[in-house]
């Protein structure tokens, strides 16, 4: 019941001739998208827990007890740093697509520095809070505050590490016009971590003033 083998040379088939550079998204791109979906769901669960404890468990007095409303200056700076840091990454991504390695390195390097600056400000905010205001062991508010911001901070640490890897790979010629998926995928991660911060900032800092 086997059909006779066709003898047309594969290279002359219209499909082979007409085909071009990759059209669909790479599997790795989808993998990152789904990872981020589940990751964002984790942040959503954390923020839901925060609002639950604030509105259902605690009620009017928020932050509870003698804890003052969170100060905003450093948080605004952090927000500004993280939001701006996405721009050079887009610049890098568009650059390497045209094969411009210089643009890749400058862009990724800038993002890396802005991310590190974010972490530095967060570190100084933590020290201040831990020594003069409250710790995670003070009460449920403290636990929620540090776990949510800490979990996010961990994401930024991983993001900065990723940028470092991309930078080194780019500098040693491993990212090229043809092979640059890694920049796009790392970018997805970075932009999402930035967007999540905006929600955290709005919930934990801005909304806490109300």
């Amino acid at each position: 019941m086997s059909a006779p083998a066709t003898v047309t040379s594969a290279a002359t088939r219209p499909r082979a001739v007409a085909r071009e550079v990759p059209a669909g998204r790479r599997p790795g791109w989808w993998g990152m998208v789904l990872t981020l979906v589940t990751d964002v769901a984790a942040f959503a669960a954390l923020l839901a827990a925060y609002f639950y404890v604030r509105f259902v468990t605690t009620g009017a007095d928020w932050p509870p007890g003698d804890i003052a409303d969170p100060k905003l200056l450093k948080a605004w700076i952090m927000t500004a740093l993280l939001v701006t840091s996405s721009a050079p990454l887009v610049f890098a991504d568009l650059g390497i697509k045209k094969g411009r390695r210089g643009r890749l390195l400058v862009g990724v390097g800038l993002t890396l520095l802005l991310g590190a600056a974010f972490l530095y400000v967060q570190y100084s905010e933590y020290t201040e809070k831990l020594t003069t205001e409250f710790t995670p062991q003070t009460n449920a508010y403290g636990s929620l505050f540090f776990v949510i911001t800490g979990f996010h901070g961990l994401h930024v640490v991983l993001g900065v590490l990723t940028m470092l890897v991309v930078f080194v790979a780019g500098a040693t010629g491993r990212i090229t016009r043809k092979h640059h998926a890694v920049v796009r995928i790392a970018g997805l991660y970075w932009h999402t971590v930035g967007a999540v911060w905006v929600f955290i900032f709005a919930s934990l800092y801005l909304a806490a003033q109300l």
């Binding site: 669960a45 827990a49 404890v53 468990t57 995670p136 449920a140 403290g142 636990s143 776990v147």
Partner: peptide
């Protein structure tokens, strides 16, 4: 589930208060 388990662990081992009503938890 993962978030809940993280919280449970921190409560048990490091004295956090997510589920502790005496310190504002639930």
């Amino acid at each position: 589930l993962n978030v809940a388990n993280l919280m449970l662990f921190l409560d048990r081992r490091y004295g956090f208060h997510f589920f502790d009503p005496s310190a504002g938890g639930d």
